[in-house]
């Protein structure tokens, strides 16, 4: 199989085309939402939401089969988003709140799944996704879920960034923190919903976190973070699907698609980190420590 077949030809197959379409849209949206997750430091809340979605998926599957996945997950995610927002606001430290929601809901999900006939198979699909077996009728709901999250975040983007930078100032300027938090957490939840049925509840976090973190490595320019994160997401999704297909078909090694996509996301992050470290070394002549939330003044751009 040629490289061209792997990168382009493969997506002529209907199931690969569907996987690409859903994953591209999802990754772009997750990248944009993920920049706000990064700026607000909401990684752990996002993790909590991925777990909160799990019982929704399980109940949805039990009630309506695979068609019940998206509605079930959406309901669970929105409940989780509201609860987490209110918990954090009520002064429960967010880590404790998330841990409570996370373990409680995950156990509910496992109990529901364990009642089904094909326990192991169902559990695996929910945890690790089914990106290559997205049914044609599931494409539109997944795209709609992603796009609702995109619109919600786009409509409040200026205010979200303001709040991320200076919550007090944003409140003094008349913005409602609770409303903004609900919109952002609900958007994260919707991304998690769409991601859970494609790459699985355990791996969707990578789609949310990695592009935003990569963008922070690449630029200190606020409004460039969003297109860069979207591009990182889109390219990683495409290369990940292509790589999974190429290795599985060309080399006969059966790679799970969702995990391969996530591996490529992380590889792109590692590459950008390496570039960043080399650039820092060249501009400063000495190594600089680069954490997950990098100091940007070493970047040599203005």
């Amino acid at each position: 199989m040629s490289l061209g077949d792997m990168l382009f030809g493969a997506f002529a197959l209907p199931f690969m085309g569907r996987a690409l379409l859903v994953l591209l849209v999802l990754s772009v949206v997750a990248g944009i939402v993920g920049v706000l997750v990064n700026l607000r430091g909401l990684e752990f809340i996002s993790d909590g939401l991925t777990h909160a979605v799990f019982p929704g998926l399980a109940i949805g599957l039990a009630v309506g089969g695979t068609a019940g996945l998206v509605p079930g997950a959406a309901i669970a995610a929105l409940i989780g988003a509201v609860l987490l927002t209110l918990f954090v606001r009520a002064g429960v430290t967010s880590d404790a709140a998330v841990a409570v929601v996370l373990t409680a809901t995950f156990s509910v999900g496992v109990i529901v799944v364990s009642l089904s006939d094909d326990y192991a198979g169902e559990l695996e699909a929910l945890l690790f996704g089914r990106v290559l077996t997205i049914a044609p009728e599931d494409v539109v709901p997944l795209l709609v879920v992603s796009l609702v999250a995109a619109v919600a975040v786009a409509a409040t983007l200026k205010q979200q960034v303001f709040r991320a930078f200076d919550p007090q100032g944003s409140r003094a300027a008349g913005d409602r923190g609770l409303a903004l938090d609900l919109v952002l957490n609900a958007s994260i939840a919707l991304v998690v919903v769409a991601g859970a049925s494609t790459v699985g509840t355990l791996l969707v976090l990578a789609l949310l976190i990695v592009p935003g973190a990569s963008a922070r490595l690449a630029t200190v320019h606020l409004w460039r973070l969003f297109p860069i994160a979207a591009a990182v997401g889109a390219v990683s999704a495409w290369l990940g699907l292509a790589a999974g297909f190429g290795v599985s078909v060309g080399a006969g090694i059966d790679l799970p698609a969702g995990s391969t996509v996530v591996a490529v996301f992380v590889a792109v992050y590692a590459l950008m980190l390496a570039v960043r470290l080399v650039r820092d070394r060249m501009t400063r002549g000495a190594p600089t420590s680069v954490a997950a939330r990098p100091s940007a003044d070493a970047m040599g751009e203005r």
Binding site: L39, F165, R216, T219, V220, L222, L225, R293, P294, A296
Partner: peptide, 8 residues
Amino acid sequence: LDPDFPIS
């Protein structure tokens, strides 16, 4: 305010 926040 976070001095690392990427904003001009």
